[in-house]
């Protein structure tokens, strides 16, 4: 049995029928071809699969596609405007906040979420906030720098 779902993915309406046991991340990667959202652990630990669901950053490996029915979804592919990177993406580029890049989509989503909840977080706050995002390469140093810069540029733009 499949279930009809209607959602917005990166601004565009999407209607399709899904199996109830289909994970949101599989819908994104396999059905919609949005492979920027990664699966690092598949056990809810690493944060590589983070997407924004109605403005909240959630683990798409721990969500059923049917649970996203009626929601507004943003993936890493939906952040840039044409060739203009989102400020958080630009900050990762500028501060070299990645090595292999596997964790990066999740880190950027986490960074955007931090900017929404903290006006001007210090380094300790950023590190604490990243407790659900694992990176095997960078040692986090430049990720923290990038998020610091990204949060500042996002919140300045808001002000």
């Amino acid at each position: 049995m499949t279930y009809p779902i209607h959602l917005k993915v990166n601004g565009a309406p999407v209607s399709l029928s899904v199996e109830p046991n289909r994970l949101l991340v599989d819908l994104l990667r396999q059905t919609l071809g949005l492979t920027g959202t990664h699966v690092g652990c598949d056990t809810s630990q690493c944060g590589a699969c983070l997407v924004q669901l109605d403005g909240q950053t959630v683990k798409s490996c721990t969500l059923l596609a049917v649970q996203a029915d009626g929601c507004d979804l943003t993936t890493i592919e939906g952040l840039a405007t044409g060739d203009d990177l989102h400020p958080m993406q630009a900050a990762f580029h500028e501060h070299h906040g990645l090595q292999c890049g596997f964790c990066t989509p999740g880190m950027i989503m986490a960074g955007i979420d931090i900017a929404k909840r903290h006006e001007a977080p210090d380094e300790a706050t950023i590190r604490h906030e990243l407790e659900g995002n694992l990176c095997r390469c960078t040692g986090y140093q430049n990720i923290v720098k990038a998020i610091d810069a990204g949060v500042r540029s996002l919140n300045q733009a808001k002000a």
């Binding site: 809810s44 944060g47 983070l50 909240q56 950053t57 959630v58 683990k59 721990t62 969500l63 986490a110 979420d113 909840r117 906030e129 407790e131 659900g132 995002n133």
Partner: peptide, 9 residues
């Protein structure tokens, strides 16, 4: 509890 993504859900 857990991390922010866990706390949202």
């Amino acid at each position: 509890i857990g991390d922010q993504a866990v706390r949202y859900r």
